[in-house]
Simulated assay, not measured.
Amino acid sequence: MTTPDSRTWRLLAPKKPPRLPPKGERWGGMLRPATLITLGIVGAIIATVWIGVAVSRPTAPTTLEGVTAEVMTEVDTVTGLLGDPVEPADDATQVIPCPDGGAGQQYVVTRTESLPASVNPRDAIDVVTGAYEQREWKVSSSPFGSEGGREALLIGKNLVPIELTLVPDGTTLQATIHSESRCTAAP
């Protein structure tokens, strides 16, 4: 009895390696109609994806007006959570170049307001951080200064940081909200 050779147990028949046809003969293998149709379909899919990516807009704002609105919405939300101020809030705003040295810009706002002295800094920070934790933001808070102040850092999925500082000031509680937008797209 003879043992079968390992070459007889192949799943696929051995194929000859491809070779270029001699000069003057037509190309047979790769230029068949099925190959050309497949290449056309693949090309159409690539073109469709490329056009879709080029035309689609990101959900994050890329203009100065858009990033300004995004930051001011969050600053207004924090202000609303703190309660009614003793006097109107004061906003200091500026537009600065992006820190990465690119052609984009950033919107920076610092809002200061005075809250009634009856507001407890710890309770006010807990209200704000609790609201932002429900929105699944990264939240941290800690004591600030020696007068019983508190500070919090809120960072959302949109990567807009908000820094909140509450400091007792005799007759009032001084609240400072600082935020910087993401960089705008280069013009």
Rank of each mutant, 00 (worst) to 15 (best):
Thr8Lys: 05
Glu25Cys: 01
Ile46Val: 15
Ala47Cys: 02
Thr38Lys: 01
Lys23Glu: 10
Leu39Ala: 13
Pro17Lys: 09
Pro17Thr: 04
Thr38Phe: 03
Arg7Ala: 13
Trp50His: 06
Gly24Leu: 02
Thr48Glu: 06
Leu31Gln: 10
Ile41Val: 15
Leu36Thr: 00
Leu20Met: 10
Arg26Lys: 14
Met30Tyr: 08
Ala34Lys: 05
Thr8Ile: 04
Lys15Cys: 07
Val49Tyr: 13
Gly24Arg: 06
Trp9Tyr: 06
Ile41Asp: 00
Lys15His: 06
Trp9Gln: 15
Leu39Ile: 07
Met30Pro: 14
Ile41Ser: 03
Leu36Lys: 07
Trp9Val: 10
Arg26Ser: 13
Trp27Ile: 08
Leu39Val: 06
Arg32Leu: 03
Lys23Asp: 13
Arg19Asn: 02
Leu31Arg: 09
Thr8Cys: 13
Ala47Asn: 00
Ile41Gln: 01
Trp9Lys: 11
Ser6Lys: 05
Ile45Arg: 03
Ile45Met: 15
Ala44Pro: 02
Trp27Leu: 14
Thr48His: 11
Pro17Gly: 09
Leu36Ile: 08
Pro33Gln: 04
Ala34Pro: 00
Gly28Phe: 11
Thr35Leu: 00
Arg10Trp: 03
Pro14Arg: 09
Lys16Gln: 14
Ala34Asp: 07
Ile37His: 04
Lys15Ser: 12
Thr8Trp: 09
Lys15Asp: 10
Thr8Pro: 07
Arg32Cys: 04
Arg32Asn: 14
Trp9Ser: 15
Gly40Met: 07
Ile46Gln: 02
Ile37Asn: 07
Thr38Arg: 01
Lys15Leu: 15
Ile45Leu: 15
Leu11Ser: 08
Glu25Asp: 11
Pro17Cys: 00
Arg19Tyr: 02
Leu39Tyr: 07
Gly28His: 10
Pro22Cys: 03
Leu12Glu: 11
Leu39Trp: 08
Gly24Thr: 02
Val49Cys: 05
Pro21Leu: 04
Lys16Asp: 14
Gly29Val: 06
Pro17Ala: 14
Leu20Thr: 10
Lys16His: 12
Ser6Ile: 13
Arg32Met: 06
Gly24Pro: 04
Leu12Thr: 11
Leu39Asn: 08
Gly29Leu: 15
Thr35Ala: 09
Gly40Ser: 09
Ala34Gln: 09
Pro22Val: 09
Glu25Lys: 08
Trp50Asn: 07
Arg19Ile: 01
Leu20Tyr: 01
Pro14Val: 10
Pro18Met: 10
Ser6Gln: 12
Met30Ile: 06
Met30Cys: 04
Ala44Trp: 01
Met30Arg: 09
Leu11Gln: 06
Arg26Val: 13
Pro17Val: 05
Lys16Trp: 04
Ile45Gly: 12
Val42Pro: 00
Lys16Val: 12
Arg32Lys: 11
Leu31Thr: 10
Pro18His: 06
Arg19Thr: 09
Gly28Trp: 08
Gly43Ile: 00
Arg19Lys: 11
Pro33Ser: 07
Leu20Trp: 02
Pro33Phe: 02
Asp5Phe: 03
Leu20Gly: 03
Trp27Lys: 10
Lys16Pro: 09
Thr38Trp: 00
Arg19Val: 03
Leu36Trp: 13
Thr48Lys: 10
Arg19Cys: 01
